[in-house]
Amino acid sequence: MKSLVVRLQSYSLTWIILIAVILGAVLSNLSPYFLTTGNVTNLMKQVSIVAILAAGQSIVIISGGIDLSVGSVLALSAITIGWLVQQGVDPALASLCGLAVGTFAGFVNGFIITRGRIAPFIATLGMLGIARGLALVVTEGVSYQVLVPFFLYIGNSSFLGLPVPIFFVIVTFAAIYVMMVSSRFGRHVYAIGGDERVARLQGIPVDRQKTKVYMLSGFLAAVAAIVMVGRLAATPPNVAQGIELQAIAAVIIGGISFAGGRGVVLTALVGAVIMAMITNGLNILGISSFWQQVLIGAVIIAAVWLDNIKSGIRA
């Protein structure tokens, strides 16, 4: 027998998937290009980076925090990779170094938040500036070329008929889903997001788990950086500015509570897909990019509103 929580969870997921399907149906009706193989492939490539960031962001938001630094950390990881590749380092090894840099930036976030007792919004806002600034300082603003087969393959090739970046998304969400639903760490994240003081009094190592949350977010920003380097074949230090807001929007559209403690990570993936569909659909229809911003803004508000109506407006 399915428990109520599981049923409620699947309910929120089906709900958001339904919205995505309706949006897809409307768009394919408006444009004959929308459902072509070529465009669906594009959609998968285009959603990948925001989706990976949204996976990390959803964990942070469930823990009751927020990570504004992911765009900058992505850039810092990307230029690390770009610089190393430029120096002739093996691309796979360079990627590992990029992952280490992202994870370390996340650790610094976590350390500042837990030891310095500084609100996540402020700590990660600081990191947003630090990581971006470092990326610019190190590169002196120059964009490295990364025209090596390893990254061209990641960004522009297909595997089993699907674009390679989507496999990064699938693996990320599969791992995060299992982690959040079936591991002690995931359970602790929900508890901390529900009531941090209770979690502490019940013996949960709150500080350690929160640090892990931000490390995970930094790590995933670096995973997104690998895909980004593949997509761009370059590492401009000003890349991915403001992308953190897209990741947060994806999480919110997915219906994960901003107050923390509630939500299913997979909905963030659907939220990211919905946003990518809007951008891609309007691009296809040739509608001005100005309207895309209006529409995405409206969808964010509508999503939260719907959520409130569904749950009878939680305090």
Partner: peptide, 30 residues
Amino acid sequence: EGQIAVVETELVKSPDAIVLVPMNGTALIP
């Protein structure tokens, strides 16, 4: 990344030619 997405979208429409003002000299190569 947004401009790359726009190029991808336009390519799907199979135009006869594309005129591009690239935001970044390398990033648009692929």
